[in-house]
């Protein structure tokens, strides 16, 4: 009786009800992405083109928001100087969870033309914030950006909500035990030295 067992323990992998709820919630999150109005360099011009009539990003349910508190993802569009990196980190941290980030163009991906000698350029935005989708290009085509949005939606729709909690709890336990072991080691070392 697979179905009934699944109902008994909905948190398990075979959970039907929670699985469907998870699908519904993921659908909502995937289909409604509000992005932060935030442009850095020349890629932002292409980003504007994506939002304008010809390529119409709103078809995917992406609506611009001007406050990071109401946004779902941030687009790092262009060269990230070291000074701007701090601001980007703050802005990203102001976005409420679940939050995502798209790195647009070579400069954001890895420093681009400045990856060797750009003393003031961050060599890849993933050194500061976690990036979900990287779009190569200098700048990428608007269609490439739209494909990245589709990829982001695909990623969101495959996320786990309920199992994640269990996993996180397990990881926390492991981390705790590791910390304890380290602490014991440290104490032993100290005792040895004394």
């Amino acid at each position: 009786m697979g179905l009934l067992n699944a109902l008994d323990n909905p948190i398990n992998a075979d959970g039907i009800i929670l699985g469907k709820v998870e699908d519904l919630f993921n659908w909502g999150r995937a289909k409604s992405n509000w992005f932060l109005q935030f442009g850095l360099a020349c890629c932002a011009i292409e980003f504007m083109a994506v939002n304008a009539s010809h390529f119409d990003l709103m078809r995917f349910g992406n609506i611009p928001r001007s406050s990071p508190r109401q946004a779902d993802y941030i687009v790092i569009s262009g060269t990230v100087t070291l000074k701007m990196a701090e601001r980007i980190k703050i802005l990203f941290e102001q976005i409420p969870e679940p939050r995502y980030a798209i790195s647009m163009g070579s400069c954001a991906n890895s420093g681009g033309p400045y990856w060797q000698h750009g003393y003031n350029v961050l060599k890849g935005i993933d050194r500061v914030i976690p990036i979900d989708v990287y779009i190569p290009g200098c700048p990428p085509r608007p269609e490439a950006f739209e494909q990245a949005v589709l990829k982001l939606q695909e990623k969101i729709s495959m996320e786990e909500i309920f199992k994640k909690r269990e996993r996180v709890a397990q990881e926390d336990k492991m981390l705790e035990s590791m910390l304890k072991a380290e602490e014991n080691n440290f104490i032993e070392n100290v005792n040895k030295h004394i």
Binding site: S106, S110, P113, W115, G124, Y134, P136, E143, A144, A148
Partner: peptide, 28 residues
């Protein structure tokens, strides 16, 4: 991730072995 897609390599190549393709859908 570093390439700036300037196309100088395609000009430099003597046998035109390196070219711009029409593929743009490779975000990852």
């Amino acid at each position: 991730a570093k390439c700036c897609f300037c196309g100088l390599c395609t000009i430099a190549c003597p046998t035109s072995a390196i070219v711009h393709s029409t593929d743009f859908e490779y975000s990852c």
